[in-house]
Amino acid sequence: KKKPLTQEQLEDARRLKAIYEKKKNELGLSQESVADKMGMGQSGVGALFNGINALNAYNAALLAKILKVSVEEFSP
């Protein structure tokens, strides 16, 4: 059984999803295209955005690059 995410991890996910929602049209992104760039399925990206799975440093760095932001913008 997976450990529930901490409040901090949930807040990171909320900020990440908000940045994605704000930038997806400008950058021409969908959850599917983000998933392709990350080498995972769309459901995996959804789980990161919705605070189901915790972000690790690798995925955080990859998402920051895809969204053209710094990791600190969603994970201070």
Rank of each mutant, 00 (worst) to 15 (best):
I19V: 08
K24M: 06
M38F: 01
L55S: 01
A61E: 14
V45E: 08
K65M: 01
K1E: 10
A64M: 00
F74T: 02
V69E: 04
K37L: 13
Q42C: 13
A18G: 10
G51T: 00
E21D: 12
V69N: 05
L5V: 09
G46I: 14
N56I: 01
K65Q: 11
Q9F: 00
L29H: 05
K3H: 13
S70W: 00
G28H: 11
K22S: 12
E73M: 04
E26P: 04
A64T: 04
S30V: 05
Q9D: 05
N59G: 04
L62K: 15
K17T: 07
V45C: 05
G51W: 01
L5I: 11
K2D: 13
G28F: 06
N25W: 11
D36F: 11
N53T: 15
D12Q: 08
V45R: 03
V71T: 08
A47L: 10
S43K: 14
N59T: 15
L55D: 04
Y58P: 09
A57Q: 14
D36C: 13
Y20R: 06
R15W: 00
K17F: 10
I66L: 09
K2T: 11
K1A: 08
L67S: 09
A64R: 04
A13T: 01
A18V: 08
K37W: 09
L16K: 03
K2F: 13
P76V: 06
R15V: 00
E11I: 05
A57G: 11
S30M: 02
T6I: 02
G46R: 15
A64I: 00
P4K: 14
G39N: 12
E8L: 05
V45Y: 01
Y20W: 13
F49A: 07
E32L: 11
D36V: 14
K23I: 00
V71Q: 07
V45I: 10
A35C: 07
N53M: 12
R15Y: 01
K23S: 02
A64K: 05
A64W: 00
G41V: 13
E73I: 09
K1G: 13
T6R: 09
V45G: 02
A60S: 10
K1Y: 12
K17R: 12
E32D: 11
S70R: 14
G39R: 10
A60L: 00
F74P: 03
A54P: 15
L27N: 03
G44T: 14
Q7L: 04
G51P: 06
V71S: 06
G41H: 15
L10A: 10
Y58K: 15
L67R: 09
D36Q: 15
N53Y: 09
Q9C: 01
N56G: 05
M40L: 11
K1V: 09
F49K: 05
E26C: 08
L48S: 03
V71L: 03
P76E: 06
Q31S: 11
F49S: 04
K23N: 03
G51R: 00
L67Y: 01
L29A: 03
M38E: 02
Q7H: 10
L55Y: 02
A60D: 02
K23W: 00
V45P: 07
S75A: 13
L67D: 11
Q9H: 01
R15G: 00
V45D: 07
G44H: 14
I52V: 13
Q9G: 06
G44W: 07
N25F: 12
G51V: 00
K37F: 11
G46L: 15
A54E: 10
G51Y: 00
K65D: 14
L27W: 01
K2I: 12
S43G: 13
Y58H: 15
L48T: 04
Y58T: 15
G44Q: 15
E32A: 13
L62F: 06
E32R: 13
V45N: 03
L48G: 03
P76M: 05
L10P: 04
Y20D: 06
A18P: 01
G41D: 15
S33H: 13
R14K: 13
L16E: 02
L29D: 07
A13D: 01
K37I: 12
E11D: 10
K2P: 08
R14Q: 12
M38D: 03
A13W: 00
Q42I: 15
E11K: 09
S30F: 01
Q9S: 02
A60K: 08
K68V: 01
N56T: 13
L48P: 05
N25Q: 14
L29V: 06
A35H: 02
E11N: 09
N53G: 06
L55M: 10
R15C: 01
V71W: 02
K65W: 00
T6H: 09
V45H: 04
K3A: 10
S75Q: 02
N56H: 04
S33R: 13
